[in-house]
Nucleic acid binder design. Structure first.
Lengths: 204, 204
DNA sequence: TCATCAATATTGATCTCGTCAATATGCGAC
DNA sequence: GTCGCATATTGACGAGATCAATATTGATGA
């Protein structure tokens, strides 16, 4: 991954390392999927980045802040993926977005959990991460809006998000079914949402 | 709650307490919602139960095992609630089940997270809990089967579960919308599933 | 009735962890 | 070159999970 360089934080200000902050984030990302967010320890992160025990505190207020940054990046990437689905040619953006969402969860389950569990990172305390999350949902909404009447876009977007998110959760948490059902399920879910959009029965 | 008395484990075998195991579970349940599963500590559980530091290890292999028992009970109660929805008079069992599921998540979010996060408890290691989870899903399937053609019950049950589960997750994790939308959303979701069941377009 | 056993409890000890303090060090501005 | 700040590091502390060793109790059989 061509790592973060936040605009307000000039690269190459570091000391031993070139860029300790990035090294820490990369190490954390690595450990996250390997050990899980709960048992990821800052000490291991630092060691893996070739830094001292206390190094993470030079760049993040605490453990939660480091995890929040990983979550923010996750949301940002998710939003970007969804935007790609939205902009690609062809009319089945919804189906593509669903598959993409599910794939991301399956490929990086620990990150997915981290993004969507208040237990580990409370988005309310990290406005930048919260904003990235909102942007991802906004993109999904745009996709739904292209196949639903305007007055139902909000409800149907919520339903679409719930449907896909729920399936993604259940897949990674309960081992519902093998991951090669992903494309088929994405198709099913897109159909369900389109059919709900077309049915006046689903009106609020 | 009229607590657990597992058949194979006679009540009243305890020592200081009457029933230390139950006291521990009750204390854990309490702390779970108060502090969250991640920061719940066995020491605090023991103290709250009026027992020593090490007491939990007399009844549970380790922390995860204690949490797994809480999750098992959660699934059991969920299955029971869903069964009640299924058996009640009236034709909108699906809507009632959806509302019930969402309500449970909102009323005990930490337990809900615990039940559905492999990070904290890996169901694969706790067959009794996994079985309780399967029973809950089975009940949901029965509800869906009453309004869907037989060859689509599995797919539509999965969709229904995903839809409701996703919404429940998003509500408690992302603070999507106030909890008084619950009934309305349950109605929406039930309509969506019924409409999908009625539309041949949603066929696999 | 009483010694004994197994289940249950408790205290001691160790290791990991998050995080606060105090201290050191390198780089750019003067 | 020197100074100051951002960045780094080691020391210290308290919380927690869990292993080991030890103690206590109630039921059981002599």
């Amino acid at each position: 991954m061509q790592r973060r360089s936040l605009p307000h934080e000039p690269l190459k200000r570091a000391y031993h390392h070139g860029n300790a902050r990035n090294a820490l984030l990369t190490a954390a990302e690595d450990l996250l999927e390997r050990r899980g967010a709960a048992s990821l320890s800052l000490r291991q992160v630092a060691e893996r980045a070739g830094l001292s025990r206390q190094a993470p505190y030079n760049h993040f207020r605490n453990k939660e802040a480091l995890l929040a940054e990983l979550a923010r990046e996750g949301y940002q990437q998710l939003a970007a993926s969804l935007a790609t689905c939205r902009d690609a040619r062809g009319r089945n953006a919804l189906e593509r977005a669903a598959e993409c969402y599910i794939r991301r969860a399956q490929e990086a389950p620990a990150l997915f959990r981290l993004m969507f569990s208040r237990e580990l990172v409370d988005l309310a305390r990290f406005p930048e991460a919260a904003q990235a999350a909102a942007a991802a949902f906004e993109t999904l909404k745009q996709i739904v809006s292209s196949c639903a009447p305007a007055d139902r876009v909000t409800a149907l977007s919520l339903a679409a998000w719930s449907l896909v998110h729920g399936y993604a959760c259940l897949c990674i948490e309960v081992a519902l079914e093998p991951s090669d059902h992903r494309a088929e399920r994405a198709r099913l879910f897109a159909r369900i949402i389109r059919s709900a959009a077309a049915t006046s029965d689903a009106r609020p």
